[in-house]
Simulated scan of single mutants.
Amino acid sequence: MLRKLGTHNRKSLLYQAFRELGRVQRTLFLLKYMSSAGIRQNINAQTTKVEAFNEFLDWVSFGGPMVKSGDPVEQEKQLKYATLVANTVMLSNVADLTDVLTAMIHDGHTVTAELASRLSPYSRDHIRRFGRFVLDMDQIPKPLNPAPIPFPTST
C-alpha cells in the first residue's frame, strides 16, 4: 500500500480514494470551524501566539527577517542562532515576570491566573538592541529558582 501511495499516480484508485477522504475531512473541519465560536477563538489565539513569536524572532534578529545567504546550512544556522537568542530573552522575561508576580503576592495583592495569562514573554521595551555591552565573565548570575505561583482557587 505504501508503495502504491509513494508513486503519486493520480490515476490510482487508492490515491483517488484518499484524496476524496481528505476532502471530506477538510469539509467536516470547516463546518465545525464555522459553527463553533470556541474553535475559532482557540485557533485564532494559537495563530496569534505563533505570529507574536515570529515577530519577536524577527526583532531579535538584528538585521530583521532577511536571509543573508542562499546556502541552506547557513540559513538553518541563522535561524537556530536567532531562536537561541529569542529563547534566552524569553527565559529572562519569564523569570523576571515570575519574580514580580511573587513579590506582588507577598505584598498582599491578588494575582489571578487570568492576569498572568495576559502577560507575554515577548516584551522587549527593556532590552537594548544596539549599543555597548560589557560582559563580566567572573560575575555569576543568581540561580533561577522557579516556584509555582500560588493562584487563588475559586470555589
Rank of each mutant, 00 (worst) to 15 (best):
M1V: 09
L2E: 11
K4S: 12
T7H: 12
H8P: 00
H8Y: 14
N9L: 09
K11E: 14
K11M: 14
K11W: 13
S12W: 01
Y15S: 03
Y15C: 03
Y15F: 15
Y15M: 06
A17D: 15
A17W: 14
A17N: 14
F18V: 10
F18G: 04
E20Q: 14
L21H: 13
L21P: 02
G22T: 06
R23E: 13
Q25F: 13
Q25S: 15
T27I: 12
T27S: 14
L28Q: 15
F29A: 04
F29M: 05
L31W: 08
L31P: 00
Y33K: 04
S35T: 08
S35M: 05
A37N: 06
A37P: 02
I39M: 04
N42E: 15
N42G: 04
N42I: 06
I43G: 04
I43C: 10
Q46T: 14
T47P: 02
T47Y: 11
T47V: 13
T48S: 15
T48W: 08
K49W: 10
V50N: 14
A52V: 15
N54A: 14
E55Y: 10
W59F: 10
V60C: 02
G63Y: 10
G64L: 05
G64A: 10
P65S: 09
P65V: 04
M66D: 08
V67M: 05
V67K: 03
S69H: 03
S69K: 03
E74V: 07
E74N: 05
Q75P: 00
K77W: 12
Q78V: 02
L79D: 11
K80W: 06
A82I: 02
L84S: 13
L84M: 15
L84D: 10
V85W: 00
A86Y: 00
A86S: 09
T88Y: 08
V89R: 01
V89C: 03
V89Q: 01
M90G: 00
S92P: 01
N93L: 04
V94K: 00
L97E: 02
D99Q: 05
T102S: 03
M104L: 06
H106N: 11
D107E: 11
H109V: 06
L115F: 10
S117T: 07
S120Y: 01
S123K: 01
S123C: 06
R124E: 02
D125W: 05
R128L: 09
R129Q: 12
F130C: 07
G131H: 07
L135V: 15
D136C: 07
D136A: 06
M137F: 14
K142T: 06
L144T: 08
L144K: 09
A147M: 04
P148A: 11
P148N: 10
I149C: 01
I149M: 01
P150A: 05
F151T: 00
T153V: 11
S154E: 15
T155L: 07
